[in-house]
Amino acid sequence: MTDRDPRHDPCAWADGTAEPGRPDAVLPRPDGGLVVRAHCPRCHGPTVKRIPRILPGDKGVDEAEQPGDTAKGAGSEQAWVLFFCECGRPHLGRPPAEGRYGCGTSWWVSR
């Protein structure tokens, strides 16, 4: 697998964190969820995070978190989403058991 994106840094995989960043785009989903796209601050690869609405826990939901409220995002109150790099590009040293195809970085993204 070759890395054809000139912006992407094919750095070695490392389980690390990075400073918070901004999203490239935040789109609403038909189910009331969100799709957030951001670039990894370490390897600069793009990651798209799909956040559906779910029944939380095994017993119950919150009436304060209504479907209409969930997609308000940064408009009313600054909200943050935890991103894990899933650029899908090769990074040497990625553990075989690692479920995410990225450089191993996690960081907060505002939405």
Binding site: R53, G57, V61, D62, E63, E65, Q66
Partner: peptide, 13 residues
């Protein structure tokens, strides 16, 4: 058992 019919975004925060 919670209140059926409402949801939360599937992110850790």
């Amino acid at each position: 058992h919670g209140r059926p019919g409402s949801y939360v975004l599937a992110d850790g925060s």
